[in-house]
Design a protein around this nucleic acid. Structure first.
Lengths: 345, 345
DNA sequence: CAGCAGCATGCAATCGTTTTCATCGATGTG
DNA sequence: CACATCGATGAAAACGATTGCATGCTGCTG
């Protein structure tokens, strides 16, 4: 026998009317006691709250949502939760949402861009707004999605939709400045997927920064943003005869590190490597990866913030956006360039 | 201007009555056309479906839930999404839930056991059932939680609650048999948190298996189940004078590997290391970690399966459980034991 | 003392569905 | 031909909450 909640009903819902009866008031008063607390006598309110407490009453959000039109739910769509970049973002979203008393619906598209729009539509009716993380869908689909629900996108910009982005250009500037200061004059960039907005941004940032430092840039193929992509790119990097390389993300950088070690290339002695993202793994590798860190949880919180703001000022499809800073984290994969530059041995 | 959905309403909901009007039938018929399809004339049904399609109608789940008592939602509570073990499980849950046309509410407790019960209560009204991943709460709290909602727990057993567990004992048997076959006679086990049910299971499994192989077991302190825990434990392992060590999880094993390398201990030459979990990182390390792999996505799917089953047979609080197999994955951190055993150099 | 302002509360309609019950033709049978 | 049967459909009552409106009470003012 467990301790029951006074009434003895283990599963049947206790409604607003039960509370009303227990407190000797009407249902409306109970409702008011919970929301517009100003319109009800403080004493009555206290009475109601106590009765509710005792009965273990919790408002039924679905019923409330039906009439108010607001569900208190948020949708969240990510391409792949197994990608170590996303869990931290999701945690940030979750945490901030809970603070604002919102619940979060999570959907993982498994990297299928064509599933994204469908999920938005399916979710639209059950939520007040949707956060799209690094969406892969087309710009047309984005517009259509925006017509279904209040949207905020993370890690992409365009279609006049409120967005949280990362200051990739500045991040790249920091990375390149760091390398240049170490004497590197010929720098490689291992590009991620061509279709990725982030990749284009980072590529742009690297180009600008390298030009500003008066150094030379070698762009190395588009590879999938995974460990294997880095493994595959390593030989190209060696052949490119650079003294330092920046990878589109940490996973690629880690792949590089592994293959470079296998090829007998000393990092950072012969070659410096810089990643982007700062996924937890990067600190655990040896040598620990120098990387451009992105405040992932902060991105998540900011996305919720922006969504809440959109929700609060309805009708205003203002194209608000927010850019979070990136920050270079120097660890053990970058060092001064080899004095002679190349071919030494 | 975007293509609108025929009616021109970008945000206002299209209800069952709109469809009814458009199809020239009553609301009841539309409802039936969507659910109990048998009670409606196939031709009428076709008509309704076409009208709904054209208007872009999607049933409002909240309204439906209000009357049926079933929400079509599932709750999911995890201790820490940033722990690389969980994302895969969550993906499995998500995928299976979507197949069954359920949506998933995600909550992350940030490793705070005292938050778990509160989240269960908050979620209970909005979902048909809740999946608790590796819950840290007390047994009493578990019982109370089970009174709030239909529950399935993953990675823990007890309180007569349906559970998905891993066959830790067999996993340990495989690991120990592998090591014994390589000639190891003195084996270490680096224990995880004392409060963890999994740790107790694994410890028990190792003891049994080591005894069965007639080898010697050295148990090494309880450490936090993180990389840092492994780093800290490495020196104890060296001092324990074993030729092989099994860690409570991969994160600890990876920490061991890192610190052992720093101490100049050759793995697997001088010491073999086995992890548990098979997190993605483990394959990327060098040397790649030999580990007892757990089918994480399958755990997730099984949990949903079990929950759905509980939901289908209401009232039957049968203590169903399901155990998924673990499987040893031999990679590069295990090798034959040093011939002389210890102190060699 | 009458009248009125203003506050606290209750009544009832409503949100978008499902579901029970009744209705209405059409069909089959004695 | 009349009556029971049956299948398809519609009308209306729920589900649990919110909210505009009406009501009753208190207390103040002229």
């Amino acid at each position: 026998m467990h301790v029951l909640d006074g009434s003895g009903n283990t599963d049947m819902a206790v409604t607003i009317r039960d509370v009303a009866k227990a407190a000797g008031v009407s249902a409306s008063t109970v409702s008011r006691a919970f929301s517009n607390s100003e319109l009800v006598d403080p004493r009555t309110r206290e009475l109601v709250l106590r009765a509710a407490e005792q009965l273990g009453y919790l408002p039924n959000r679905a019923a409330r949502g039906l009439i108010t039109g607001r569900t208190g739910n948020l949708g969240l769509i990510v391409p792949d939760l197994a990608n170590p970049f996303f869990p931290e973002v999701v945690k940030g979203i979750q945490a901030r949402a809970r603070e604002a008393d919102y619940s979060v619906f999570l959907s993982d598209t498994d990297e299928d861009p064509s599933a994204e729009l469908g999920l938005v539509k399916a979710l639209a009716k059950q939520v007040d707004g949707i956060i799209l993380c690094s969406p892969r869908m087309s710009a047309d689909d984005m517009r259509e999605a925006a017509d279904c629900s209040t949207l905020v996108v993370v890690n992409r910009r365009g279609s006049n939709i409120p967005a949280i982005t990362i200051d990739n250009v500045d991040g790249m500037r920091q990375a390149v400045a760091h390398l240049a200061a170490l004497g590197h004059r010929r720098i490689g960039y291992v590009a991620g997927p061509r279709s990725s907005w982030s990749n284009r941004e980072r590529q742009r940032g690297v180009r600008t920064a390298v030009a500003a430092e008066d150094a030379e840039l070698v762009e190395i193929g588009n590879v999938p943003p995974q460990f294997e992509g880095g493994v595959a790119a390593a030989d190209l990097v060696i052949a490119a005869d650079v003294t330092a390389v920046i990878a589109y993300n940490d996973l690629i950088a880690l792949g590089l590190l592994t293959r470079l070690a296998a090829r007998g290339v000393d990092v950072p002695g012969e070659l410096s490597v810089v990643g982007i993202d700062d996924i937890p793994m990067s600190a655990m590798f040896s040598p620990a990866l120098t990387t451009v860190s992105i405040p992932k949880a902060q991105c998540g919180r900011a996305a919720v913030e922006l969504l809440l703001q959109q929700l609060a000022t309805p009708g205003v499809r203002a194209s608000s956006r927010r850019e979070v800073p990136a920050q270079l984290l120097v660890r053990d994969t970058t060092a001064v360039a080899l004095p002679t530059g190349r071919g030494a041995h």
